[in-house]
């Protein structure tokens, strides 16, 4: 088992991903992710000079739609699926801190 990812690092990543793990789970995850990254050492070691990245298999550009209004959903249908609703809106616990 390699130590590519420490428990602290795993904890940091978990915070970014809004997930919570126990310390034992973090250790196990760190080990599993380390193993996957070890396996990815071939990719990591690759000499990529001169190779462009491919984000997408199809070389398409400029796919757009006309600026025409289409029907929206009914609010009742939308809110019927929401876990918590008040005053025609989605209700969430208090938000601490501003949006970044």
């Amino acid at each position: 088992m390699s130590g590519r990812i420490s428990r602290d690092e795993a904890a940091h990543v978990a915070r970014l991903a809004r997930l919570r793990f126990s310390d034992d789970e973090l250790d196990e995850l760190a080990a599993q992710l380390s193993a996957v990254l070890d396996h990815a050492a071939d990719v990591e070691a690759l000499d990529v000079s001169g190779i462009e990245p491919t984000s997408h298999p199809q070389p398409l550009t400029d796919v757009t739609r006309a600026d025409e209004v289409r029907p929206s959903l009914s609010r009742d249908e939308v809110l019927a699926q929401a876990p918590s609703v008040a005053e025609g809106q989605f209700r969430v616990p208090p938000i601490l801190g501003e949006a970044p």
């Binding site: 990254l37 990719v43 990591e44 190779i51 462009e52 990245p53 298999p57």
Partner: peptide, 25 residues
Amino acid sequence: IMLGTYALSAGYYDAFYSKALRVRT
């Protein structure tokens, strides 16, 4: 989600994600 968050995070993007895209090429 953990692996992907790690691979995209600032310190590792170039080592992993960016290289993986080049493997695709």
